[in-house]
Simulated assay, not measured.
Amino acid sequence: MSSSLIIKSNIKTLEKAHLILNKLSNDLLSDSSIAPYYSSIGSHMRHILDFYSCIFNITNENKIDLTARPRNKAIENSCEEAKIYLNNIIETLKNFNCNSNKNIIVLDDLGLGTIEILTTIESILAQANSHTIHHFAIINYILNNLNITIEDPNFGFNYTTPKK
């Protein structure tokens, strides 16, 4: 039961990306003029979706390699390409077989080289959801500095953040 709720939560969070992609031009999507990191909304969007792509590329040995991201630059520069990638990720999530009884191994580089981490598919999907919200917060910071507002006052806020 919790597997389906985790997938629904991920979909609900990812669907918020439509608010941005439907509002921005390609120039604004790829604008990297905002300090201190000079990253673009498109680079964060691509990064978010690449995380999910890695999850979907789980091997027959139940391994997920988070270091093997596609990093398609077209996603960073084209709202249309980003929408296609986003919709593909959401559709794949809707049909994703989330067998929570199996352990998986996640490969990632936490700063000291690639390591293997024993976990579950539910845990990596929960991490993906939090990771998405974290990057949405950065995107919200960029939007604010570009004087762009979106219709969702909770965009980029974790669901557990207290409401004022």
Rank of each mutant, 00 (worst) to 15 (best):
I104A: 09
L86F: 10
V106Q: 05
G111K: 03
E76W: 08
P70N: 02
N95P: 01
I105V: 12
N97E: 15
K83M: 15
N88K: 12
C79N: 13
K83H: 07
E76I: 08
L110M: 12
E122L: 10
A82N: 05
E122W: 00
N87I: 03
N77K: 15
T120C: 00
D109A: 06
N97Y: 09
T119C: 01
I90D: 07
N101Q: 13
E122V: 00
L118I: 13
N97G: 06
R71P: 07
K102H: 11
L112S: 14
I105L: 12
L118Q: 13
K83N: 14
I75G: 07
L118C: 04
P70D: 02
Y85W: 10
C79W: 07
I64S: 02
N72S: 09
Y85C: 11
E116C: 08
N97K: 13
I75M: 03
I84S: 08
P70E: 03
S100D: 10
L66T: 07
L118A: 09
N72Q: 11
T92K: 14
L86R: 06
D109M: 01
K102R: 13
F96A: 06
L118V: 10
T119S: 09
G113C: 06
T67D: 08
C79K: 13
F96S: 03
V106F: 08
T120Q: 05
N62G: 01
N87V: 05
L93C: 12
I64H: 04
I115W: 00
R69H: 05
E91M: 06
L86N: 08
N101K: 15
E81K: 15
A82L: 06
L112V: 07
I64M: 04
K102C: 07
N77T: 15
I117M: 04
I89Y: 06
E116A: 13
A68T: 05
I121E: 03
K73N: 11
L66S: 04
I89D: 05
G113W: 05
T92W: 02
N95T: 10
L107C: 08
K63C: 11
S78Q: 04
N62Y: 14
A82P: 10
I75T: 12
A68W: 01
I90T: 05
N62E: 09
I64P: 01
V106N: 01
I84V: 15
K83I: 14
D65I: 05
Y85F: 15
S78T: 08
K63G: 00
L93H: 03
K102L: 15
T92S: 13
T120W: 06
I75K: 09
I84N: 09
I105K: 08
A74H: 10
G111Y: 03
T120V: 01
N88V: 00
K63Y: 11
L110C: 10
N72M: 09
N103T: 09
N72G: 00
N62W: 10
N103W: 00
G111L: 03
E80F: 13
I115E: 07
V106C: 07
Y85N: 08
K83T: 13
I104F: 04
I105P: 02
L86H: 07
L112A: 15
